[in-house]
Design a protein around this nucleic acid. Sequence first.
DNA 1: GATGAATGAGGTTTCATTCAT
DNA 2: TATGAATGAAACCTCATTCAT
Lengths: 218, 218, 218, 218
Amino acid sequence: MGSPSTAARVSAPRRHRAVPAAATRFDRRLAEILTHATEVFRKKGYEGASMRDLSRASGMSLAGLYYYFESKERLLFLIQKHTFTTIVQRLKARLEGVSDPETQIRIFILNHLEYFLANPASMKVLSHEAEALKNGFASEVAAIKREYYRICVGLLDDLKRARGLQFSTRIAVLSLFGMMNWIYTWHNSRVDADAEQLAGEMSDIFLRGVMTGAKGRR
Amino acid sequence: MGSPSTAARVSAPRRHRAVPAAATRFDRRLAEILTHATEVFRKKGYEGASMRDLSRASGMSLAGLYYYFESKERLLFLIQKHTFTTIVQRLKARLEGVSDPETQIRIFILNHLEYFLANPASMKVLSHEAEALKNGFASEVAAIKREYYRICVGLLDDLKRARGLQFSTRIAVLSLFGMMNWIYTWHNSRVDADAEQLAGEMSDIFLRGVMTGAKGRR
Amino acid sequence: MGSPSTAARVSAPRRHRAVPAAATRFDRRLAEILTHATEVFRKKGYEGASMRDLSRASGMSLAGLYYYFESKERLLFLIQKHTFTTIVQRLKARLEGVSDPETQIRIFILNHLEYFLANPASMKVLSHEAEALKNGFASEVAAIKREYYRICVGLLDDLKRARGLQFSTRIAVLSLFGMMNWIYTWHNSRVDADAEQLAGEMSDIFLRGVMTGAKGRR
Amino acid sequence: MGSPSTAARVSAPRRHRAVPAAATRFDRRLAEILTHATEVFRKKGYEGASMRDLSRASGMSLAGLYYYFESKERLLFLIQKHTFTTIVQRLKARLEGVSDPETQIRIFILNHLEYFLANPASMKVLSHEAEALKNGFASEVAAIKREYYRICVGLLDDLKRARGLQFSTRIAVLSLFGMMNWIYTWHNSRVDADAEQLAGEMSDIFLRGVMTGAKGRR
DNA sequence: GATGAATGAGGTTTCATTCAT
DNA sequence: TATGAATGAAACCTCATTCAT
């Protein structure tokens, strides 16, 4: 997962494939480029990064890049889609068989932060460049984002029902996303705790915040 | 506050000034431009916005803009510095005379969100373009940010001491900033609650989260 | 006529004009550029001419050109529209007060060839690049062309009626245009006759061809 | 005629050939490509058509095309040379045994228009892209064109001599070419007459024009 | 016989900025 | 105070073409 071969499968290359499951040379090369591009976008931002920057970073000629994707925008799209798809996939696998709402939410947070800290560049590009895509590209990523959001809303609504709590799910969920996604602005791997501990602390703050004394309120 | 005259004082214009405190025509004109520019940066991002966009939005010629500031980067700097300075100023005024840590934190959150929802464009530009400035500009804004951060850390440490709590102040503060600053990505004034209510709900989540069951832990 | 000032009036510059009849400095500069561009398009064709070629020919920087028109396509449009408009204008003036159909057709041909030989570059660009424009640009030029064509059809129908002739007006008119417009492929001012004589000979061929022995036919 | 085998003979392929008269697979494949390319050049113009367009149209890979001809320019050359050669060939065959100058000219016109309407794309590419070739390619096509032009001049001079007429042969011939070659700009097979009728009407206009009342003139 | 992969050069256009007025 | 005119640099992208396979 997160391996080049997966990235490749996500990338919808322009050629038909007799054996879609196999990672072709094209796929592997594309995945390499995506990795370099992600790092450049992280450092300079999508608008601030030039195709020349990407060319330099990936060691491929400017024109060569266009053999692998038809526009800078599609490149960002591929990165965002792959990142988001992977997170959602992993989440679903981890939630399978778990039924306690609180545990589920802790898994949600852990899954998010683990991926975040393991792929900080991808996650910054996903979080920070959310508005950079347009039209078809934008809507396709937005669809995944909505699914992810919906899952979280579902878990929180389960929790509310199970514990008889009352609070605004929308605000709670969006606050949680804020806590988690803001990490890209401050996390320093040499100073800050690892994903598990961070997830624990954020889960504590969030879950206690949401579960305490909210029974009769509102 | 937030008036043209304040903006002007922040802006360090190039002309000599007999009476620096008075809002000159220069100051007022600059403030207008800043307002338009903020809106353009919000919509298109700093890198994505061109000087031509700013010219169009402010109804002034491209060359005319340069009479008021010497570069696009300095323009962003003026916006960020003014915004941040104003928030900190207001916060200090509001905290004056308050001594209960919980109340102080609630004031901190309310102050932040009130300004946020009253000046959503400024706040998005402050949050989202935090890395766009370089060198001298960057460090001057970073200094204010650090002061603001320090204030929040102080309040939280007071709370911990007062209530005998134990948690990572750093993570708590940064989580709180995440909750608050992420708002620019989702707040919809036609759907979402006003600043006071929002501040209440976020304060509840955060404070309960931080104050509950954290006594003996860690 | 055909002077820079006329060209300017045709060019629909981007600014409002208090006194539309006056040729501003902008207009004059634009007209100069159009003249150079026409020559480059004649030599290399519209597709074959690069903006760099135009920059070189007009002695202005690449970026400077874009101050005067927003795209290469619009530049071609301005040339074609001005050329065609001028021809039609002159034709109308010359036809005024003339009522004999044969004389009118001779005037039509003379007008066309005089302009052609006086402005060979413009006319080649008009004739040869008829399909290069797209959408709005194309349709605006097509409208003038249709008017010009309609005038010629009208003259020929008058002739037919007056002399009791019978032939296909469409084919006659389009043959005439072919004779005249093909000139850009072969006319050599050092070898070939001047406009008046050329017009005389073409008029003879065409009119005799169309007026001879066609009474009872078809 | 006009068959792949002819195209092949015209094309001077790079391979050795045991039996040059036979249409090899190479020749047939090349002829197919030429057909597709002609259509693309007609639609987009020589400069406006990219090798990628040709690749798409012919269903062959970009690199594959280069097995059949070494450059885009040579491709245009092959098209033009084949087209022109074929026209001249056919003309010569048709003129054989005919001695009346008027009949000969009518045959010339019919031959031209028949080929024109049967191969509109080739003829547009021949007429419209006359200046696109350079150096050796250009001169080789120019040679055929000159021969074709000379034939027409010969026929007209015969007519003049036979009927004691006086007019400029050069202008007459070039007017005739104009009438005929301009067709590509307007002919619509759903509206306009077929080649025979069109040739008849153009021949009438031209021959009457040239043969009427020109005896004592000039 | 044909192609996937790659490239240097160059395409059109936009950028932030300047300067004489 | 403000702008029209202009520019060098650089943006994204496409071009015809090549070469190992």
